[in-house]
Write a protein that binds this DNA or RNA. Sequence first.
RNA 1: GGCCUUAUCGUCUAACGGUUAGGACAUCGCCUUCUCAAGGCGGUAAUCUGGGUUCGAUUCCCAGUAGGGUCACCA
Length: 497
Amino acid sequence: MNHNMNIHNKKIVTRFAPSPTGYMHIGGVRTALFAWAFARKYDGTFILRIEDTDKEREVQGSIPHIIESLKWLGITWDEGIDIGGPHAPYIQSKRLASYKKYAQILVDKGLAYVDPYTPEEVESFRLKSQEEKKPFLFREYRPVNPPVWNGTQPLRFKVTNIKSYQWNDLVRGQLSAGPEALDDFILIKSDGYPTYTLAHIIDDLEMEVTHIMRADEFISSTPKFLSLYEALEITPPVFATLPPIMAPDGKKKLGKRDGAKDILDYRSEGYLPQAMLNFLVFIGWNPGDEKEVFTAEEFIIAFDVTKIHKSGGGFNESKLDWFNREHLKQLSYEEQEEFISKFIPGSLKKLPGYTNFMVHNITPIIMERISKGKDIIDMAEAGELTYFFGKPVYNKDSLFFKSSKISTENKYQILASYLTHVVSLLDPISDIDFLKEKIKEIIWPYAEEINHGDILWPMRYALSGLDKSPDPFVLAEIFGHDETIARLQTAILILSK
RNA sequence: GGCCUUAUCGUCUAACGGUUAGGACAUCGCCUUCUCAAGGCGGUAAUCUGGGUUCGAUUCCCAGUAGGGUCACCA
């Protein structure tokens, strides 16, 4: 069997087919991303199908959550669960008739039989094989005279063509497996639902899917799929196996247990969808040049399945932070303001100084200090934002921070006189000229004359109440003429008490 | 354990027989006329091991080792 890409003579149809068993994590999202990009790149069709044949593991609310996650990232589908399409319905629990139809075809061909055993009996076969130290194969326990299928009993595929399979994978190249990978597997479960193996093959056939992208845990079961395709005389789609996403140490596969979070948690932590997309795309794929910051559109243009890697890649959150910074920088000033105000805690928004204008003013200095929205929350909790919206808190001694040169008895008065002079220098500047360059130009000669620290540290404290902050010139510009003078005079007052 | 599969700096990766093995993140150092941040410049750091093939192997082949996957009435 040889699979070609068929890119030029057949419309590409790919799909993402999650099961509604909980939230989406980065692994699933990345699979969706690549299938989507592939369809978009070749002007094909992208389908969102829900595989809900396992009613036991189903989690309520998963489907809207999946849809929301994909939409957040800007992944769009042409046919799917919520929007329908020519092959609707796009949820397996509503397609049972199709599966039954093909199951009946297999029964009629003598390629499927009713499984008469109880789960306990099957388990005992398994244990027996284990004791004999050989792999368990159900086909060695085929019932001699199974009952006739009436459509309600569990049904097994009867593998007849027991051979080695070799197939081509768009990413992995030639893959193969020996006959021991083949066995009689369940087609229809005792609850009447099909297994994944049967259902996905029928759906892909009926939905005219040409390319399947999936994670590497499916390699091992591919021979089973191939034997079923063969039995049903279906030409298999092209397979593309994506490399796994590993834990940050690069050693083990990233599972929910190892911190594979809900993708929407990244949204609430203040990661941009475009950054998330950019980051995910670079785990297991590389354009081959040195460009790293991609928009979704650029990615689709650059995307090339043959450049998907075979080996797994680790999830590196600090690189994600970096990508987020890069994409944050790409936002317009207005978008940055909006982003910042979204993450400023409500307690700060209640302060009298909280205004849209103040948010506008502090946008640049916030932007250069954060890599994600959560950092704004952290800054706020550390008290690094409060002084913008409310009065700074400090005492007369903290105004001397690092001003070691002054140690006389009347040091408070000396410092007050310095600040008074600063006020006299700044007061004549009009509010419109109250810009950091201008302020610095005026203050600096005086600061040189005295001692930098004796002017700059008290100014910083008067304006921010903190010893770690943007420089006083920047702060003065943010606050403007009146507020700056007012804060300096408060400091003078404190020193004079 | 059987079968399948993978292997370049700590991490993501470039290289498609010939390179001083390149870039990014992280890290470290220096500069940026006060702190923090940002920015600039620079440093440390990798071809899993052993055999082949070849004039020459990160690259091709084999073995070992290590990692991952899978052996369900889960997908």
